[in-house]
Design a binder for these strands. Structure first.
Lengths: 172, 172
DNA sequence: ACTTGCATGTAAGTCGTTACATGATTGT
DNA sequence: ACAATCATGTAACGACTTACATGCAAGT
C-alpha cells in the first residue's frame, strides 16, 4: 500500500524520501501518511524489485538520494490503479466508544461527542484552508477531488454527531 | 484497542473467545473486527493484568474457557471510555487511487467508481437488513446508533461517488 | 461417512510506528 | 552560539493477519 503511494508520487518526477514525506503532509496526510522510518526501507525494496532507481545527488551542499520510477515501476503502478477496488473498513475509535456508550454517564457521553464535533469542525476548516491554498497553484484535479471528499466527509460526520448530541441533550 | 472491545463485550456477562467473535460479526464487524488468532492471546494478556478471569466450563460436552470481567477490568474499561477521543484517519484505498486518477484512462476511472458505488450500496443494504433483524430483539440503543452511523456513512459515500461519476461521464 | 460448525491455540509473517543515532545547513 | 529544518538510516517494538494444527459434536 505504502509502496504504491511512493510510486505514485514519483510518476511526475524524481524525488527524495524526505521530499515525498513533505508532499504527503500537504496532500494525502488526512487519509494516508507514512513515517520516514518506513519510507526509506520501502525505497530499498522497490529498488530491489526494479520499480525505482536511485541517483546520488549533491544539492544544497548535501548528499541526497533521489529516486526515479522505472518503466516497470510505471507499469506496476498503473496495474495497481486499474485493479479492483474494494470496501475498506472504517477503523474509528469514536464509533467503538459509542458502541459501548451505555456504560458511560449521560454527561460524559455529551462531553465526548462535543469534543469530537469540535475536532471534526477544525479538521474540515483545515482541509478547506488547504484547498484554497492549493487552488492558487496548478494542482492536479483529482488531488483536489480527494480533498473535496475529505472536507465533505468531515462535514457529514460533524452534522451526524451534532444531531446525535441534540437527542442526547434531550435525555438530560 | 482490541483489548478494549473484548472488555466491552464482557461488561454484560461472561463469554468465550469464540462467542465474542460471533457477536462481533453481527455488530461491530463493519468498523471493527478481530481474528480469533488475536483474540485468544489478548485474553491471556488481559488475565495477566487482572482485568479478566477465566473459568473452565463444560458445555455441550466440550471444554470451554469462559472469561468474565473483574472489578479492575470494569474500572479500566470505563476509564478508557471516558478518555479523550481523537480523530482517526480515513484509511481508504479508493481515496488513494482517486488521488492518482490522472494516471488512469477515463474509461477505467468510471469502471472503478461504478464498482465502488455498487459495493457501497450493497454494504448499506446489508447493514439496513442487519438493523431490521437486530431491532426484533432487545438490542442496546447505542449499538443501533453505531449501525445507523454505518448506514448513513455508506449512503453518504455512495451519493458522493455517484455525483463524481456524473461529472466523469460528462468528460467522455 | 462426511461436512459444517464449535472451540482453542501457535507460528510465521506483514506492516507499520517510535525512538534512537548521526550529521550537515540555514536562520536568528 | 543555538535552534530548527534538512536528510538518512536502523532497531525495537506493537498490533495485527493468515496459515497451520488439533479435535469434538451435530446435522445430513
Amino acid at each position: 500500500m505504502q509502496d504504491k503511494i511512493l510510486l505514485g508520487f514519483l510518476m511526475d518526477g524524481e524525488k527524495t524520501g524526505y521530499e515525498i514525506k513533505k508532499l504527503m503532509e500537504n496532500s494525502t496526510s488526512f487519509f494516508f501518511n507514512t513515517s520516514l522510518g518506513s519510507i526509506y526501507p520501502a525505497f530499498g525494496k522497490l529498488e530491489k524489485m526494479g520499480y525505482v532507481k536511485m541517483d546520488q545527488v549533491i544539492g544544497d551542499g548535501r548528499v541526497k538520494k533521489r529516486y526515479s520510477i522505472t518503466q516497470e515501476g510505471r507499469k506496476h503502478f498503473r496495474e495497481w490503479l486499474a485493479e479492483n477496488v474494494s470496501l475498506s473498513k472504517i477503523r474509528d475509535d469514536v464509533l467503538l466508544k459509542m458502541f459501548f456508550f451505555s456504560e458511560l454517564s449521560v454527561e460524559k457521553r455529551c462531553e465526548q461527542i462535543c469534543s469530537y464535533i469540535d475536532q471534526l469542525k477544525k479538521q474540515a476548516d483545515t482541509l478547506t484552508a488547504l484547498k484554497e491554498k492549493l487552488m492558487q497553484y496548478d494542482v492536479d484535479k483529482y488531488m483536489l477531488k480527494t480533498l473535496d471528499y475529505g472536507i465533505d466527509y468531515y462535514l457529514f460526520t460533524h452534522d451526524w454527531y451534532k444531531r446525535l448530541l441534540e437527542t442526547l441533550e434531550d435525555e438530560k
